[in-house]
Every structure is written in structure tokens, then in C-alpha cells.
Design a protein around this nucleic acid. Sequence first.
DNA 1: TATTGTTATACTCTATAACTATA
DNA 2: TATAGTTATAGAGTATAACAATA
Lengths: 140, 140
Amino acid sequence: MNETVGSMVRLTFLVQNLFADVGQGCGLTVAQSLLLCSLNDRAVGMAELATKLGLERSSLTGLVDRAEQRGLVARESDPSDRRAIKVALTPGGRDAGHRFHDQLRVRLDEVLSELTATDRTHFTRVLAQLVADVPAVFSD
Amino acid sequence: MNETVGSMVRLTFLVQNLFADVGQGCGLTVAQSLLLCSLNDRAVGMAELATKLGLERSSLTGLVDRAEQRGLVARESDPSDRRAIKVALTPGGRDAGHRFHDQLRVRLDEVLSELTATDRTHFTRVLAQLVADVPAVFSD
DNA sequence: TATTGTTATACTCTATAACTATA
DNA sequence: TATAGTTATAGAGTATAACAATA
């Protein structure tokens, strides 16, 4: 395996493990962490949310069910369309999402702190180029 | 969210999606792809394999069961310890693993082809530094 | 008819706890 | 006693297909 490719896969698993670990510390599964990150700024309909998360609508039903049972999100009815449901963060969900977000930033910054300032600047620029077409995971 | 951190998370999801997509094209789940990659060069005992994959032994039992039902791996007894089981690739599992490996390399190379040669060299060096402590996913 | 969301069902993946067989 | 592996059980996550309500 090509060296750059192998390193990219390893970096991926490093970040995924960090993501899962930080989530666990906040009482969140990976899927729940992504759900909360998708709701940071506004209530979102089930269909739009499913598209954003890359899930079937039926899969999202279960994910939202479990998150709702844990008090992280709430379903709201939409006055303008009686078929539609909007999913919104509860105060507890917002707290958990913020803690997750902050801690992930700290943990990833630790990883990046090994780099010199020059390397980090360069790395940031190249990363931005590589992920230009990838939708943002976080709303900020 | 800090820009470098956000880009790293996005790169992670890009690579993970690629990993899952290539696996699906080879008839493999993500867990099965990782299992095959861990067996590339030799038969491995269940306990060692569980450690390598970061799973409980009982979780690995099920993963190997399903992979065995699909003809990807086989359990072999160990003459030197009658408690032990070694897991080995079948010819079909070896084929699937090679196809997965080759296609993933191609797909990731496509992503990296956006970079100039200079950027890629620099990126490779920085990546190697970041993942120095992460165990290799592939055996080569 | 098309869209929104849910239900029913099935499978994969994972963990914890209890167990068997062997060292 | 300690180790290797399995079984039993539970829960999360996901998909497909069929459905109900509304647009």
C-alpha cells in the first residue's frame, strides 16, 4: 500500500476513535453526536435531516426515537404542513453537543500540536483543498 | 470550530465513506474489510485478533462466524494448544481482500491527485508524523 | 399522485456476564 | 487459577418494503 494512502487511512481511524471516545465521555454514540451536530442552529425536518446524515428516513426514525428517549432532542409539529415533523435540540441536547464539540476540538488540537507552525499552516491549506467538496459536519 | 480541526473531521468522513463504499463493491462490510486486512499474511488466533481489531473476544466470535458463513475465512485448530483457534483467509477471502485493497488505493489516489507533487510530498511527511503512533491497518 | 414520516422485519456490530475446555 | 473461545442476551444502527396521513 502506497505510503500516503496508508497514512490517510490510519489518520482516519485515529480521528474516528477520538470522535467515538469524546462522544462516549459525553454519553453519546457516534450517530447521536452527528445528529446533535446537525441540529446546532435550528430545527430540521426528518427528510432533510436524513439527507444531511446520509440515512434512510426509516433509520432516522429510530435514531431520533432513541435520542428523544435520552432527552437530547424533541419532535415538534410543523403548523404549515401537518405531515411534517421538525427535530430540535432540547437544552440537555444542546449542552451535550457543546461539550462534545469543545472536547473534540481540544483532543484534535493535541494531535496537531505535534506539528511546527509552518507545517500546520501548510497542512491546513492542503486539507482544505482535499475536503473542499465534502459537506461540513459542524454548523460553524 | 477551528478550521484545521473541522477539515480533519471532514477528511475522516470522506475516507470512511470511501472505505465503506469500496467494501460494499466487494461484498464486504467495514468490519469484514478490517478483518480481512488483519489476516493478509498469516493465520491469527482469536485473542490476538480481538486485540488487533480492538474488539471483545465475544464480538469477534460473531464477526468470524458471519465471515465464515460467507466463505471469507476459516477456523483452524492449533495442534500446540487445544483451546486455541486460528483464523485464516480462504482463497475467496484473499481475493476479496486484494480487490478491496487495490480499489481503495485507486480511490484514495484519485483524491490525492488534486494536489501538486510538492504539496503531496509535504502532506505525506506531515501525515506520517501525525500517525506515527497509530497501528497500521494493513499488513504491508 | 407525490411526499412525509412510521412500522414491521431482518441483519450486522458491539458489549457484558456466564460458561466450557484446556493449560 | 488463568487463558482461549463460545453462548446468551441486550441494545444500537442500518436497510428494504409496506403503510397511513397529508399535500
